[in-house]
Computed example of a mutant assay.
Amino acid sequence: MTSPRRGQLAGLTAAVLFGCSAPLISTLTGSGSALSIAGLLYAGATLALLVVRLVRGTQAETPLSRQDWPALAALTLLGGVVGPLALVLGLARLPAASSSLLLNLEAVFTLAIAVLLGREYLGRRGLVSAALTIAGAVLLSEGSLNGANGLGAALIALATLAWGIDNNLSQRLSLRDPIQIATAKAAGASLPMLLLALLLGHAFPPLPVALALLAIGALGYGISIWLDLLALRDLGAAREAVLFSTAPFVGALFSLLVLRDSLSAPLLLAAGLMGAGVVLLLLEQHSHRHRHEPLLHDHRHRHDPRGEQGSGNPHHEHHHAPQDLEGLPADRPFWHAHEHHHREIEHAHPHVSDAHHRHRH
């Protein structure tokens, strides 16, 4: 499976898990405060990621370095603290319909930052795909701004902006170990919220509900965050945003099939729009001649010793120190991670805006 296909599969699975979590959480919101519930969800995410790390064992990944901690702290603060708190405060000041409509700004902010500041490229088909999926999300929210006030709308916009920046910062860190990043982010979000809820005397859910929230957080936040990081690594933030914006439709479909909500015309129309948008993105083929500047970095990559040109990827045709290959197979493809140099190269092939393809168009 190619890197873009892996990223697409990871991104869609992340959207499915997160989308299914939303309607389940909505049935439990009356059992405790918003802060305690959010803390329990991220605590479940932390536990799940620790289990995944234990089960998977040591993988060929580049760990976080000291230089990465500022970016990790920023995305944890923005995505795990500022975003949820601004959302809770905004929801208290707005009608549900207005909130649902404004939450679609996350995809818009993510796309805008990725394309305008992150040098990612979306061609005509990608832009049409983004427009279709966002239009489907807007339609699905059935929202209007009737009854909205300036402060409430500003708080929801702040939450979505925080998550948009978080997505782009996460993409920049995605060459590092995704499990390590996701675990640090989940733990960094859950502990402050749980401590703050305890200090402020907020109500906590009863034990059965708390266990349910931990389980929902494990899948809908923990595993979803990990898969989303893999999608960010292989696709870039812009394309990941298009795929992840299908989460509201997944949630609506889950509510229809599992929670027995009624079928509506907006759901059917949103399904058509989002389905068309996702298909367009999956069929996208962006290829042209482009030039790569010399680059030195450290990340997970693949080699095939049987191939005439290493892994078949000219970016990773490089020499190795003996310690780089210690314990690795000599007769079959393998993954490993080490600092390596990318030589200057000019070629043409299908590609997306991953870490190796941030060139001008």
Rank of each mutant, 00 (worst) to 15 (best):
T246E: 07
L232F: 08
A22K: 11
A218C: 02
T46I: 08
L140Q: 02
Q8R: 14
V138G: 02
T46W: 00
E61I: 03
L140I: 09
I134C: 05
S255W: 06
T2V: 09
A43K: 04
W163G: 00
V51W: 05
T246W: 01
A238F: 04
P322G: 10
S26T: 13
P205A: 06
Q67E: 15
A337H: 07
H349F: 10
L227H: 04
A131V: 14
R260L: 06
Y121V: 12
L295D: 15
L173M: 13
E326L: 11
A162N: 03
A38Q: 08
H297A: 04
I165Q: 00
N167K: 05
E339L: 12
S99Q: 04
Q323R: 13
H338Q: 02
F204I: 08
D324H: 10
L28C: 06
S353K: 04
A86I: 02
L161M: 15
D331G: 13
G32W: 05
L89G: 01
V279Q: 09
S65P: 11
E293H: 10
A241I: 12
A276C: 06
A186C: 09
D304W: 04
L41W: 04
E240I: 12
L103N: 04
H357W: 10
Y42N: 08
R343C: 07
H361D: 15
R300Q: 15
G147Y: 06
R358M: 13
N168K: 01
L40G: 04
G7I: 02
A48P: 02
P350W: 08
L122G: 06
A184W: 07
E293L: 11
A247R: 05
D324R: 06
Y121C: 11
V16M: 04
T27E: 15
R56I: 07
L196I: 09
L54A: 10
L232Y: 08
L282G: 07
P305R: 10
L283C: 15
L196V: 10
L196T: 07
I25E: 08
T46Y: 01
P350E: 07
A247E: 08
P4I: 02
N146A: 14
A247P: 04
F254L: 03
E240S: 14
A157V: 11
L140R: 02
D166V: 11
A189Y: 04
W335Q: 12
R66F: 15
L9D: 09
L54S: 14
P329C: 03
G307Y: 13
A241M: 11
H292F: 00
P294K: 02
G307S: 13
P63S: 11
L24D: 09
Q8H: 15
L72F: 07
S311Q: 10
L101P: 00
R291T: 14
P23Y: 10
L78S: 08
V115E: 02
I37N: 07
A148S: 07
L196P: 05
A348D: 13
D331E: 15
A114F: 00
V55C: 03
E61N: 08
A131R: 08
R172C: 09
T110F: 00
V55K: 02
V81G: 05
R300H: 15
L268V: 14
L132D: 00
V51K: 06
L151F: 07
E293Q: 13
L281P: 13
Y121R: 12
F18E: 07
A265L: 14
P208G: 01
G83L: 11
R124G: 15
